[in-house]
């Protein structure tokens, strides 16, 4: 069991309002990812859920029980930090067992759980080592193991992969995804990397400046962004935003994803000159300065031979253009 309800949670640091009323309902077993630009309050919200920070107002319920005044250790949560935060003076085994020991669990039970989770994460060879004797990736696995051992209702991750190199990040991401499949426990994961968000999440919560912009499954956010911010934030390269008036439309802004534009050398809607082309092998990003729509990014799959100065015609897929009103809200 591990459901979480957040009701109108606000947080201010002195005069600065960091969270401006967050409502969220996380179901048991769900993998929820918070994304948003730096400084939007993701970590603050996670720390409030963990009990490391008090909400200025609002309610927090875990499994239907109000936990606003419950200390972190009693909330049935475990947290994995960006900087691993292993205890430098303890061995891997003691790092993993400390929480249970503090809670007064019997030694046999602690040993059993450490054995189980170190097997799950292949940490057995390192149990006697200290954190200083481990690589970054191993440290983060130990930190995940320390969370596992507690068998929490709620796993909290605060950018756990940011300090790892690219290859390790992909591996550890996979490991976390498998862990969730196996344990079926509720996980809340903070990241500013949208690839992590899209690949891991059952549901994504997009935060911006202390507010929830949209909550939904990854494909829902991709296909039906509720507003300009979400449309621009989800998807890479970023969605093209074109002034509606230039295209003779009633919408204030028209959005087209780079991958939903096709190009031709002979004919199309928007004629333009190539400014720059990025050849990535699997796909090619073309930056096209068009007369009608301004600078447009186009993502073409596979290799495409083009270079600066070349003239191309771009045609957006009419079924996959988005229209936003003056307030930035998506129009039907």
């Amino acid at each position: 069991m591990g459901s979480l309800q957040i009701e109108n949670v606000k947080k201010s640091f002195g005069p600065v309002d960091v969270l401006k009323g967050i409502d969220l309902d996380v179901k048991d077993g769900e993998f929820v990812v918070f994304v948003g630009p730096s400084g939007c309050g993701k970590s603050t919200l996670l720390r409030i859920i963990a009990g490391l920070e008090d909400a200025t107002s609002g309610n927090l319920m875990i499994d239907g029980q109000r936990v606003n005044a419950v200390p972190p250790a009693k909330r049935g949560i475990a947290m994995v930090f960006q900087t691993y935060a292993l205890y430098p003076h303890l061995t891997v085994r003691d790092n993993m067992g400390l929480g249970l020991k503090q809670a007064g669990a019997p030694a046999a039970e602690i040993d059993k759980r450490i054995a189980a989770s170190s097997a799950m994460l292949s940490l057995e060879p390192y149990l006697k080592r200290r954190p200083a004797e481990l690589s970054g990736g191993q440290r983060q696995r130990v930190a995940i193991g320390r969370a596992l051992v507690r068998e929490p209702k709620l796993f909290l991750f605060d950018e756990p992969l940011s300090n790892l190199d690219a290859a390790l990040r992909v591996n550890t991401r996979l490991e976390i995804a498998q862990l969730h499949n196996r344990l079926k426990s509720t996980m809340i994961y903070v990241t500013h990397d949208q690839v992590e968000a899209m690949t891991l999440a059952d549901r994504i919560v997009v935060l911006n400046a202390g507010r929830v912009e949209q909550v939904g499954a990854p494909m829902e956010l991709y296909n039906r962004p509720a507003n300009l911010f979400v449309a621009g934030f989800i998807g890479s390269p970023k969605m093209n935003f074109i002034d509606g008036a230039r295209l003779g439309q009633t919408a204030k802004t028209v959005g087209v994803r780079p991958e939903h534009i096709s190009v031709s050398q002979t004919a199309g809607d928007w004629k333009g000159t190539v400014v720059h082309a990025e050849h990535l092998g699997a796909d090619t990003n073309v930056f096209l300065e068009t007369e009608k729509a301004g600078l447009v990014t186009i993502r073409l799959f596979g290799e495409y031979k083009t270079g600066p100065g070349e003239t191309l015609f771009a045609t957006p897929d009419p079924a996959r253009t988005y229209r936003f009103d003056a307030a930035g809200k998506a129009m039907a």
Binding site: R47, A50, G51, L52, P71, P72, A73, K74, I77, A78, M79, F81, Q82, T83, Y84, A85, L86, Y87, L98, G99, Q102, A103, R146
Partner: peptide
């Protein structure tokens, strides 16, 4: 001293 380390201790009930 890393805040994360202190927070990890708090979550472990220190």
């Amino acid at each position: 001293v890393s805040d994360d380390l202190k927070n990890a201790g708090r979550i472990d009930g220190l």
